[in-house]
Amino acid sequence: MPKQNMQNGLNKANQAAQAQNTATEFASETNVAEVRRQNQQSAQKSGQQAGQATE
């Protein structure tokens, strides 16, 4: 019986670790998308400012 309990505990720990990894991967992908969006906005603003300066 104790061996079975230990196996159940390991399975639950493994499932929790997999869930954490999935959440971390999702957060990373979300952060990449957000950083790209901010970079594009920054580039647009820089382009607009450069255009205004040369007019």
Rank of each mutant, 00 (worst) to 15 (best):
Ala43Val: 04
Ala13Arg: 04
Gln20Met: 07
Ala13Asn: 07
Glu25Leu: 12
Asn11Ile: 05
Gly51Met: 02
Ala13Phe: 05
Asn21Leu: 08
Gln49Ile: 13
Thr24Glu: 14
Asn31Gly: 01
Asn39His: 11
Asn8Leu: 05
Ala17Cys: 03
Gln18Tyr: 01
Gln38Gly: 01
Pro2Ala: 13
Ala50Lys: 03
Gly47Trp: 01
Asn39Phe: 08
Asn14Ala: 13
Lys45Ile: 13
Thr30Ser: 14
Ala19Leu: 00
Ala53Asn: 07
Ala19Trp: 00
Ala23Phe: 01
Gln41Lys: 03
Ala16Ile: 03
Asn31Met: 11
Ala16Asn: 09
Phe26Val: 13
Asn8Trp: 00
Asn8Lys: 07
Thr24Pro: 00
Asn8Thr: 03
Ser42Ile: 04
Ala33Asp: 12
Gln40Ile: 11
Thr54Val: 13
Val35Ser: 02
Gln49Pro: 01
Gln38Leu: 15
Ala16Val: 03
Gln15Val: 04
Arg36Trp: 04
Gln41Met: 08
Glu34Asp: 12
Asn14Gln: 12
Gln4Val: 10
Ala53Cys: 00
Lys12Ile: 03
Thr30Asn: 14
Ala50Thr: 03
Ala27Met: 11
Gln49Phe: 08
Ala27Val: 06
Ala19Pro: 01
Lys45Asp: 12
Ser46Trp: 05
Gln4Asn: 11
Glu55Thr: 11
Ala53Gly: 00
Gln44Thr: 08
Gln20Asn: 10
Glu29Arg: 15
Glu55Ala: 14
Asn11Leu: 04
Pro2Arg: 07
